[in-house]
Every structure is written in C-alpha cells, then in structure tokens.
Amino acid sequence: MENDPGTDWYSDEKATFGDRVTDARLAMGLGQMDLAARLGVRLKTLRGWEDDVSEPRANKLQMLAGVLNVSIMWLLTGEGDGLDARHVGRHIAGDTAALLAELHEAQVALAALARQIENLERRLRVAVTQEDDNDRNP
C-alpha cells in the first residue's frame, strides 16, 4: 500500500489499541458516552482505553469487540477482522487528516502529562504527611 499522508498516522506500525478502539467506535457512529453505556463502564474507563492509559479486562475486551464488530485480535494487534487502514478516514481530506494526526499526538502527550501530574500529586501528599508526622513527633 502506498504511503498516503491522509492515513499514514494510522499505519500498522503506529496505530495503538486506543487508536483502533476510537476509530472502530467512530466507524460505528458511536460517541464515547454511548459506547461506555453499552459496555456498562464509566466514561473515564473508556477514555483510559482510548488514550492508551489502561486496557480492558478480558470480559470487557470481548464485549468491546462484539459491540464494535471487530475481532479481539484486531483490537489488540491490528491483525484479523477489523477496519482496514485504507478505510480509515477515507472521507477525510489531506489537511483534515494531518490535523487529526496532530490532535492525536497532542492527546497522547496530554495523557502522559496527566500521569506525570498524578504522580507528582501523590508524592506531594506523601511528603506533606511525613512533614505533619515529623511536626507532631519531634
């Protein structure tokens, strides 16, 4: 397959589990809230999957594949019955596809930053607790 700038960001080498979940959801015409409700999970949980912050357990993975009409193998690896990269965004013009790729990169960076902030908050809570303990027990 030729390197089409409109779909290059979604190549087998670059697409993640979250990318595949998001695109399959969009291909089904579902919003995040709709899919979360169908799966019986919180919106935050689904967003975690799409942002590659977490992964579903086996039973939810099976439900996810069923609702999205793709194989579990395709969700996990990009191989098997699923969306073909040639069909991803075929209605999207080159400029729009480039913007989507840039947006995806920003979302991945934002998710990483959110994890870093959570880690810093956790460390700060521990430090404050230790200082309080030291003040009470000199």
Results as ranks from 00 to 15, higher is better:
Leu99Tyr: 12
Leu68His: 07
Thr129Leu: 12
Pro5Gln: 11
Val70Asp: 00
Ile92Val: 13
Thr45Lys: 03
Ala85His: 01
Ala58Ser: 13
Leu35Tyr: 00
Asp95Pro: 06
Gln32Lys: 03
Leu100Gln: 01
Ala24Asn: 03
Asn134Val: 15
Asp95Glu: 14
Met1Thr: 11
Gly48Tyr: 02
Pro138Gln: 11
Leu43Tyr: 15
Glu118Val: 07
Glu79Pro: 07
Ala36Lys: 07
Asp19Ile: 02
Met73Gly: 04
Thr22Val: 00
Gln32Val: 01
Lys14Val: 01
Gln62Met: 07
Leu124Met: 03
Met73Leu: 12
Gly40Ile: 04
Val41Leu: 05
His91Thr: 13
Leu68Phe: 00
Met63Gly: 02
Gln130Trp: 06
Gly94Arg: 13
Trp9Ile: 00
Gly80Tyr: 03
Glu121Ala: 07
Gly40His: 04
Arg20Ser: 05
Leu99Pro: 08
Gly94Pro: 13
Arg90Asn: 09
Met28Gln: 14
Gly31Asp: 09
Val21Cys: 02
Arg25Ile: 10
His104Pro: 00
Phe17Met: 02
Val21Phe: 11
Glu2His: 12
Val88Ser: 00
Trp74Met: 01
Met33Val: 15
Leu64Ile: 10
Leu46Ile: 03
Pro5Asp: 09
Gly78Leu: 11
Glu2Ile: 15
Ala112Lys: 15
Glu50Lys: 00
Arg123Ser: 03
Thr96Met: 12
Ala85Met: 08
Lys14Leu: 10
His87Lys: 10
Arg123Lys: 02
Trp9Ser: 07
Gln107Glu: 14
Leu30Glu: 03
Thr77Trp: 05
Gly29Leu: 08
Asn3Asp: 14
Arg38Tyr: 12
Met1Gln: 14
Ala112Gly: 13
Ala65Arg: 01
Arg20Met: 04
Leu61Cys: 08
His91Lys: 13
Asp12Cys: 00
Asn69Arg: 12
Glu102Ser: 07
Glu131Gln: 15
Leu26Ile: 08
Gly89Val: 02
Thr96Lys: 09
Leu43Thr: 11
Ala97Thr: 07
Asp51Trp: 11
Ala111Lys: 12
Glu79Cys: 07
Arg42Phe: 05
Ala127Ile: 15
Met1Tyr: 08
Lys60Glu: 05
Val88Ile: 14
Glu2Leu: 15
Ser71Ala: 04
Asp133Met: 09
Val108Ser: 09
Arg136Trp: 06
Glu50Asp: 01
Arg125Val: 12
Ala114Trp: 10
Thr22Arg: 15
Pro138Val: 06
Gly78Tyr: 12
Ala111Asn: 14
Ala36Ile: 07
Gly29Cys: 06
Glu121Arg: 13
Leu68Gln: 00
Leu61Met: 03
Asp34Val: 02
Trp74Leu: 02
Leu43Met: 13
Asn69Leu: 05
Trp74Gln: 07
Val88Cys: 04
Asp81Phe: 10
His91Asn: 14
Thr7His: 10
Thr45Glu: 05
Pro56Gln: 08
Trp74Thr: 04
Met28Glu: 13
Ala24Asp: 11
Thr7Cys: 08
Gly29Phe: 03
Met73Gln: 11
Ala15Arg: 11
Leu124Cys: 13
Leu35Ser: 03
Ala37Leu: 11
Leu75Met: 07
Lys14Asp: 06
Thr129Lys: 08
Leu120Thr: 13
Asp34Thr: 06
Ala93Met: 07
Leu43Ala: 08
Leu113Ser: 11
Trp74Ser: 03
